[in-house]
Simulated assay, not measured.
Amino acid sequence: MRKHPWLVLGGVLAVVFLLGLAIAVAANALSNQTDDLWAKISTAGVGVALTTVAGAIAAGGLKFLDEKRSRDQERRRLFHDVVAAYNQVKACRRGMEALGLVGSGVPSPRSGTNLRAEEVKELRSIMSRLDDAQLRFEALKREVHQSDLFRNKIDVEQELKLVEDYINKVALSNWQKCGKSVWENEPADVLQNLGLQEFHRFFEWNISKRLDHLTELLQAELFGGRR
């Protein structure tokens, strides 16, 4: 019964409707005049039946619109959260490029020099923001899994999982193991263990393309197609 409240409500309304009609028919059979008591009861029975139907339709329509509006708001909020997390990951990638740690012209982190204090500070800030973005993707994946907001729920959840797995396994797991070696005046060679160049090299395929597809899925749910 908890899973099908509309069936219970529909059953109750049907009983009231039929009861109203039964009263109207019975009273009409007993009526001898158009304005006697039985005629009035018959009219009242018809009124009860019609009012029940009209009220049910109106209440059902309002409830449907309210639930749809609430559902759309939740889906838009999740869509915006996905875009915000994606932008944060892209900002982290650009920060790595600005430090000269990754890029098409960077085969590997520089060697033969020591890390400067400002480099260490910026890299730690970048990795902290990347960790925050990964946790946001993980939370969004869990939210999609536990809700029924999307018709393509499995596809949406899968894309979120692939993105957060890539961030976690390629960048953050290495940082967790080797980040303790990244400090001021340490040899820059320690950066080679972080896997940041690999993270950058396959970024387009494992993050950008995944999130482009996810964006199309969410837009189709919200707006009926890609815009």
Rank of each mutant, 00 (worst) to 15 (best):
K3C: 08
P5Y: 02
G11H: 05
G11I: 08
L13I: 11
A24R: 03
L30R: 09
S31P: 01
S42T: 10
A44R: 00
G45A: 01
G47N: 07
V48G: 04
V48E: 00
A49I: 04
A49E: 00
T52W: 02
G55M: 05
G61Y: 15
L65C: 06
D66E: 13
D66G: 09
E74V: 15
R76H: 12
R77T: 13
F79Y: 08
V82C: 03
Y86D: 10
V89P: 04
G95V: 01
G95R: 00
A98N: 08
G103Q: 01
G105Y: 05
P107H: 09
P107Q: 05
S108E: 14
P109D: 10
E118K: 06
E122Y: 07
R124T: 03
M127Q: 14
R136H: 10
F137W: 01
S147Y: 11
S147F: 05
R151W: 04
E159V: 14
L160S: 02
E164T: 12
Y166C: 02
N174D: 05
W175H: 11
E184K: 14
E186V: 11
D189M: 02
Q192F: 08
Q197V: 13
F199I: 11
F199N: 06
I207L: 07
K209E: 15
R210M: 09
L211N: 14
D212K: 12
H213V: 06
E216M: 09
L217M: 10
A220P: 05
A220Q: 11
E221D: 10
